[in-house]
Design a binder for these strands. Structure first.
Length: 240
DNA sequence: GCGACAG
DNA sequence: ATCTTGTCGC
């Protein structure tokens, strides 16, 4: 007998309600992250690369998530899915996953059914291992779904980094003390770098290679741009 | 106690 | 994240 809903896209029963529970869950789940693995070379895969993002309307207590699948080679949009729900957790630095993942899982599960297969890679807006407890949004989503994930953020959070060279592709280590937790990666010549980190089942080199491939025309990856536009539209539609 | 702080 | 007009430039 086949279950109607894939359990890999369901919220765990022990999903936290308080900050203390959330931190404790991160501490005991961080060991499940897999660093390294094989994903198809950027641009040569025959599968789909998925971008996820979330938008909020705190006035109406609404949250809208979007998951957009792009053809790994052409970057053309092949499938889209959205999910709307109630905001269930406040924004707390270090606990972003608990605010975004519920809606993201819903959208991702729907997208999987529409695609008819699992994505090659999921690109998240935020961090993976570059996190106070090495378990940011991208890593958490990866562990829950079992999918390869990466985190691409627009800000360095509290981490240190030297300014990368001026050209697209130039990068410098993102450091938490002496530990390298990710990379500051320049995706466009003379434009502010992005901050890339491993989510789950990928190497940092592949994470950066994919980010560059997806950010061919703009500073941000095409996956993130499409997902961002879609979740904003879904939020407006839900508000009206 | 003060400041910093992904989205 | 979100509140927000025009404006400079490709």
């Amino acid at each position: 007998m086949t279950s109607a809903v894939d359990p890999r896209y369901e919220l765990p029963r022990d999903w936290p309600t308080t900050e203390a529970e959330a931190v404790a869950l991160q501490e005991r789940t961080r060991a499940s992250v897999v660093v390294g693995g094989e994903v198809p070379e950027p641009g040569t895969g025959t599968g789909a690369v998925v971008g996820v993002d979330v938008a909020y309307d705190d006035e109406h207590d609404l949250v809208a998530a979007a998951a957009v699948a792009l053809d790994a080679r052409s970057l053309a949009v092949v499938a889209e899915a959205t999910a709307v729900g109630r905001v269930s957790f406040p924004y707390v630095p270090g606990l972003l996953a608990f605010r975004e993942i519920p809606a993201v899982l819903d959208a991702l599960g729907d997208l999987d059914r529409r695609l008819g297969r699992r994505p090659d890679l999921v690109v998240c807006d935020g961090y993976g291992l570059a996190h106070p407890r090495r378990f940011g949004l991208a890593s958490h989503l990866g562990v829950l779904t079992g999918l390869p994930t990466i985190g691409v953020a627009k800000n360095p959070f509290g981490f240190r980094h030297a300014d990368p060279g001026p050209r697209r592709g130039d990068w410098s280590p993102l450091l938490d003390g002496a530990e390298e937790v990710g990379r500051a990666l320049r995706t466009r010549d003379a434009v502010k770098p992005l901050f890339v980190s491993i989510g789950h089942r990928v190497t940092i080199a592949d994470a950066c290679a994919y980010t560059l491939h997806l950010a061919r025309d703009f500073r941000q990856p095409e996956t993130t741009r499409r997902a961002d536009a879609l979740c904003r539209r879904a939020l407006k539609a839900a508000t009206l």
